[in-house]
Design a protein around this nucleic acid. Structure first.
Lengths: 212, 212
DNA sequence: ATGACGTTTGACCTTCCGGTCAAATACACG
DNA sequence: CGTGTATTTGACCGGAAGGTCAAACGTCAT
């Protein structure tokens, strides 16, 4: 494989397959046990490879983790990017809430991986938070502020409005075991959350009755 | 010290002081790096003790962690316990939100320790979640349902209402670095959150206008 | 079929880490 | 002061974990 980095030779069929398998296994492990709590042997076992073989595809445990995080951030921000300035404000925001909740439901491992990273002080993605993430949020916050100024949604601090969407949707993925423990059997947390969050943001965003 | 467990000799002055110091140091470390990410040497260093000395006061790293978690749960549930059936419903709930937010502000390490544990599947406190926690939440959920039935607050799924309070308040402690990265300098997240959450739950809980 | 390159592995190295132990040092109290 | 108990520590142990390496094995294009 010599110098895949600089030579940029295209990936072989086997490389594509094994890198994929490894990332999948690593996501499983990292999201369950955290970075330090996961061992390379564990990932290798999950991926059905020997440890040296795994380290043939990625230079280190760090590198696997980094790759996962960088792939993650994009996916994670997509729903927010899709917030359309031309759309109907309340419908746009409710749509964002729904997409974000679906992300929690369909990709809980990714959500937990991200939560883990932030909890530990975001040592590996602080840069992205202060750059890419902040820029996008600022942009969309400005949009929300415009909508509020136009009386099309309630007047709320836009950044905190966004935080509230993140908090409420990710909670169902990150705190899944607690949610299920408290609800007991016979519940579908995500289905129930769907309705509840729809109501919540519906009431929250309804424009104030203007007097004049 | 021989057999402190069974003999139940009262703790000496030095024992009280050192156990306290160790728990404080361990809270710092565990909440920052997680259980696996924290080493005993690290805790000992923070506490200003040698490793064997630390292990003279606690039998293992596990034991320190367990002690912290069990102390934590009580503190954490107190504000919910304080929800008063005799009080004015909306004021009671807004008071709960405020106390929970203050807990996040004043004890962010505890919040992160808890979040870490849940994220990893709550291996060490699942029992408490399904027992003590569920019982208390069920009791308070019934109270909320009563209030809703009496038309004193909006009709909402009570468990999810409680989840939303947890999610929104703990978010500011657990995702602190993200919140600050996105807001940029010159913000007081907790002060702003205070006002925002007051508005949010005010609107959410306002009883529906009855037609009849 | 063969040579070049891609893939896999067993054995091994080093460091870290949780925990132990015996011996030394402080402390309290009669 | 002296003695029994509490406290502290340096040295050490065994296992786990991240990573390396040389050699063996596949694959594929000519």
């Amino acid at each position: 494989m010599q110098d895949r980095q600089t030579a940029e030779r295209p990936l072989t069929r086997i490389q594509r397959k094994n890198r994929q398998t490894i990332l999948e296994a690593a996501l499983d492990a990292f999201s369950s046990y955290g970075f330090r709590g996961t061992t390379v042997d564990q990932i290798a076992e999950l991926a059905g490879l020997s440890k040296p073989n795994l380290l043939y595809y990625f230079p280190s445990k760090e590198a696997i983790h980094a790759e996962l995080l960088s792939m993650l951030l994009d996916t994670w921000l997509d729903p927010l990017r899709a917030l359309d300035p031309e759309g109907e404000p309340v419908a746009e925001i409710l749509g964002y809430v729904r997409r974000k909740l679906e992300l929690s439901r369909d990709y809980p491992r990714e959500s937990r991986l991200f939560a883990n990273e932030i909890l530990q002080g975001a040592p590996r993605i602080m840069e992205a938070l202060e750059g890419e993430l902040k820029a996008l949020v600022d942009e969309k916050a400005a949009l929300l502020a415009d909508w509020a100024a136009a009386g099309r949604i309630a007047d709320l601090p836009p950044h905190h409005l966004i935080f509230s969407i993140w908090a409420l949707t990710q909670h169902y993925a990150d705190f899944d075991v607690q949610v299920r423990a408290v609800l007991g059997p016979g519940h579908d947390p995500y289905a129930e959350a769907q309705g509840f969050l729809d109501t919540l943001f519906g009431k929250l965003l309804a424009p104030d009755q203007r007097n004049g």
